[in-house]
């Protein structure tokens, strides 16, 4: 049985619903031998800032039960180096490229967007307003609906490309943040980013990470992510959602689509297995075939609530 896997996230057509998440797939080419980026629904780049960033001190990562905590601090090569050194090769392969945009201030977000607007071959932007590991920018926009709407509106005015906003599970009012992003002109919402978390070294009586706290990812957070996607989908049924959080299998993809996501991002699973997105896609196709699903879009929002 053939399964049609193409999906749409708003106006953007994707060949399949499995994407590589920001911060887990480099700039798109690093893992090409294991996972050709053009075979993904899309790849989301590491968060790009106007200038290169060195990130946080080490240790930056620690494994926890069924998860890991990271505090990388958005180390990245900067938007200029990405556009100059990476984008041509990535576009040449035919990959669908979503640029994750980060700034410490609104002006910095706009700076990244404006540089990217000079390039062809970028399919969409994902605004990172949810990174828990930086002292300025990121989460502070995502937690305040007023600031978030203002930022989204400003970004909206600079581009006609699809604009996604990646929401924070740490926001005091997730649905409020979602509404603010949509009011500002977001085409889709990505959720969730990592959950603020910490690990403690009881021998040393210190936090394990140099920054004290970081963001939890991996299978441990999947139930939280499903619940949040479902809540936002119920509140904003017309808004396309991109689900992320602990996706490890084709069945996980189906679960996220059922609660309302139009596509999913695979993140931490890539650290375990660089071929994970393609394996997950294959498993998802098998799931659909086994369940008599001809078109993946049949699943989207199809959860039957008791």
């Amino acid at each position: 049985m053939s399964v049609t896997c193409a999906v749409r996230v708003g106006a953007l057509s994707l060949v399949n619903p499995v994407l590589a998440a920001s911060g887990t797939f480099g700039y798109g080419l690093e893992l090409a031998e294991f996972c050709p980026p053009e075979q993904l629904g899309a790849l989301v780049t590491k968060g790009l800032s106007p200038k290169p960033r060195l990130g946080n001190p080490t240790p930056r990562i620690v494994e926890t039960a069924a998860g890991m905590i990271n505090a990388i601090g958005l180390q990245n090569i900067g938007v200029e180096a990405f556009c100059r050194d990476v984008l041509p090769a990535l576009a040449g392969r035919g990959a669908t490229i979503v640029v994750n945009v980060f700034g410490e201030t609104m002006l910095q977000y706009l700076e990244v967007l404006e540089r990217c607007e000079q390039e062809h071959d970028i399919a969409a932007y994902e605004l990172n307003v949810s990174c828990p590991n930086v002292t300025a920018g990121g989460m502070e926009f995502g937690h305040d609906p007023v600031q978030l709407e203002r930022l989204t509106t400003a970004c909206r005015s600079r581009t006609r490309r699809p604009l996604w906003v990646k929401l924070s599970p740490n926001a005091p009012d997730l649905v409020g943040a979602a509404r603010a992003a949509v009011a500002g002109g977001a085409d889709a919402l990505t959720l969730i980013n990592t959950l603020r978390a910490m690990a403690v070294d009881a021998d040393a009586r210190r936090p394990v990470l140099a920054t004290g706290c970081g963001g939890l990812s991996g299978p441990a957070i999947k139930p939280v992510a499903l619940r949040m996607v479902w809540e936002v989908h119920r509140a904003l049924p017309e808004t396309p959602l991109v689900g992320i959080g602990g996706v490890e299998s084709g069945r996980d993809v189906a679960e996220f689509l059922l609660v309302g996501a139009s596509a999913v991002q695979v993140g931490t699973a890539i650290f375990r297995d660089p071929t994970a997105p393609l394996r997950i896609l294959r498993e998802f196709q098998e799931f659909c075939a086994e369940h008599g699903i001809h078109d993946a879009t049949e699943l989207i929002g199809g959860l039957q609530w008791r």
């Binding site: 911060g23 887990t24 797939f25 480099g26 690093e30 893992l31 590491k46 060195l54 990130g55 080490t58 240790p59 930056r60 990562i61 620690v62 494994e63 890991m68 990271n70 990388i72 180390q75 931490t268 890539i270 650290f271 660089p274």
Partner: peptide, 23 residues
């Protein structure tokens, strides 16, 4: 030996600071 999640250069967990300032 630095804590490492992926071993493939994408997680940026295992970074080391070099004399030239690069990480």
């Amino acid at each position: 030996e630095e804590p490492m999640a992926c071993g493939l250069g994408v997680c940026l967990g295992c970074v080391v600071e070099l004399a030239d300032g690069r990480v």
